[in-house]
Structure formats: C-alpha cells, structure tokens
Nucleic acid binder design. Structure first.
Lengths: 192, 192
DNA sequence: ACCTGAACACCGTTCAAGT
DNA sequence: ACCTGAACACCGTTCAAGT
C-alpha cells in the first residue's frame, strides 16, 4: 500500500518528466542519460526507478502527457470550421505547447520502430484524430448526404490535417523556425 | 600508405554500410548495435573500426551516400516543370531509393540535434536544394522579371517542396504506407 | 595495411540496506 | 513505501598481436 498520497506520486512523476524534458531540449533523446535526469532532477537513480520501471516507461509517460497539443480551442463548440481553419488552430496549438519541433521529431522517430513507445504514440494519435474528427464533423456534414458519410469523411481528413502539421514540424526541425501562416500560404500555392 | 586499392576500400565501406542499413530497417537506429552490424556483415569489430572511425562516422556515411534520393529525373533537361510536378518526381524518387520512411525519419531525428550527423544532413540537404532550385528555375523565370529574382524564387520554393515531401514521409512513418498521388490530391484539396 | 578479439569505459538497471 | 548508491550487465571503443 502506498504510504504517500496518489497526488504526491503524480506530482513526483511529473517533476521527473519535466526535468527529463529540460535535458531532452538541451541534449536530444539519444544523448540524454538517466545520470543526466538524476542531476537535473536532484533525485537519485533509485528514486527515478521507484516512479518509472525503466527509461522506456518514462519516455511513454512523456509521450502521453506532453506530446498531445492542447486541443481545447479545436474541440470546443459546434461551429463549422474548414479543414484549413482546423490546420491553422493545430499549428497554433503546436507552437503553444512548449515542446520544440526537434524533440517532437525525435519522439516520432522512436515511435516509427515497433515497441512500447510506438504503441503509446499510436494511442496518443488515436486521441488526436478523434478530437480532429469531431472538429471536422460540422464541415463534413455540409459536404455529404448522411451522418455516416460525414463521419467517414471527417475521419479520413484527419490524416491529411496531420500530414500538413507533420510537414511543418519536420521542416522546422531540420531547417529552423518558420511562420505557420507563411508556411500554409506557400504550400497552398505550390500545390496548385 | 594503403596496401589495398582505394576501390577496395570504397567497396568495403559500402558493404559495411549496406549491412548496417539492413539491420537499421529491421531494428531501427536506437536498437542497432555495432555487434549487430558485425554479425550482419560477417566481419569483426576491428574490421569495421578500420573503415569507420566510430559509429557516428558510419551514420554520416549512410546519410551522405543513401539519404539523398536519385534526382537524375528531376535535374535532367531544361523543360519547364511546375513546383507541383517537381514534388511528384521527388515523391517518386523517395519511393524508389529503397530506404523506408521510418529509417529516413530516424535520421532526420538524429540530424535535428546539434552534432556531426546534423552537419552531414545539412550538407546533403544543401545538395538537394541546389538540385531542386535548378529544376525549378525554368518555371521561376516565367514568373519573374529578371534572372536574379528567378533564382531567389526558385531557391525559396525548394523549402516548400521539401516540406510537402517531409509531410508525406513523416505521415507514412507513423500511419503506414500511402499512395503519393492520393496524398497530394488530398492535401491540395484540404488547403483550399 | 588490414584484421582479430579480448579488455576497458560508460550507461541502464538491479538490489541490499537505510529512513 | 520511498529512497540511496554501489554492483552488475551490456555496448561502443581501443589496442596488442596476427597476417
């Protein structure tokens, strides 16, 4: 039985994860050691291992808690928003969540090889797509005959919204910061 | 002085790199050890270290030799091609070069943190942008007043061509294979 | 010069002992 | 129960010795 409250445990886990994120921003996923996180957090090796079973579980926690941008602005309301407007809101959410494109890209890379991190990333991605699909639904209803078709259209378009956001993040990670509005304008023109 | 020919050394380096790539496709960058490459190549640890100073140099060699898609089809000729057509050719080149989107994404991740791999990736990217810029030039000339403006427009658009290709690759790495034509059509529609 | 493979250093993980 | 930190296992790298 836990001697400390669940709230204490949660706070401790988040404290460790935030220390880890600070190191990740400085050194990258590959070069961040448990020793670095020990130093940054001020705790001991054993303390970290008493809150996360291993480095992978800490990574999964970071994915589940910090890699999904705040989607409140997207999810809220039943107003009709075009896919383009949803993309704009999503890029704004990415910019606001405080994690650099470089670290996001590194977690995608971890998630592109089979394993626990990939499983966690896919779970996170399912949540993201669900949020996007419900945001796209009012628009989809205006372009389809019945509710079933609308749901399918909205779900299909979430992949494309994600692709445009992924292009922006990968582009920023390699080539440096870029204005989201300028990016969208340039990519729209180029695809004509 | 080398006892064997430069040609032999080159062949040996490529042999090692191709063995490494086979392991990378199976296990990913993070989980590929020198021991794996030793087994896959049939050589010894020392043999690999006599051709590459360390794991990082092997990674840099792979980036410089295998990460740039064959751009012959793009570079050849002086015909006018729209950015859209260049993107189509580039996605075809990516599909043909035999390296999975997952492994490409993992090398981008390595290259998004400061270090030797990033330097090598940026050098490769400079070559890619030069090839794209020259391919875009005929089109750019038709949209500008003088040669100087045309060169600047072509160079600027290379970033956008890259972003669309990056979106495709990152999308495939996370969500699975996708038809390039369908992707371009969907993304074009969604951005209207 | 190219290659072998044992030895070394470092990092993730475990675990006996402390509070 | 939570935490400490030394001990262990594994992987990248080195290097003395072989051809």
């Amino acid at each position: 039985m836990p001697r400390v409250s669940e709230q204490y445990r949660q706070a401790r886990r988040e404290e460790i994860a935030r220390a880890a994120l600070r190191v990740l921003e400085r050194k990258g996923v590959r070069d961040t050691s448990i020793a670095d996180i020990v130093t940054e957090s001020g705790l001991s090796t054993g303390a970290i291992y008493s809150h996360f079973t291993n480095k992978g579980e800490l990574a999964r926690y970071i994915v589940s808690e910090f890699m999904l941008p705040r989607l409140d602005a997207i999810a809220a309301g039943a107003q009709v928003r075009t896919p383009r407007q949803i993309i704009e809101l999503m890029l704004a959410a990415v910019a606001e969540n405080g994690i650099s494109p470089a670290v996001i890209l590194q977690f995608w890379a971890e998630g592109s090889v089979p394993g626990d991190i990939r499983d966690e990333l896919l779970r996170t991605v399912v949540k993201l797509r669900a949020a996007l699909a419900s945001a796209l639904l009012p628009w989809a209803r205006e372009h389809t005959a019945d509710e079933d078709q609308a749901a399918r259209l909205a779900q299909a378009r979430t992949l494309d919204v994600a692709a445009v956001a992924q292009g922006f993040i990968a582009n920023e990670a390699i080539f440096g910061p870029r204005d989201p509005a300028e990016y969208l304008k340039a990519v729209t023109q180029i695809l004509q």
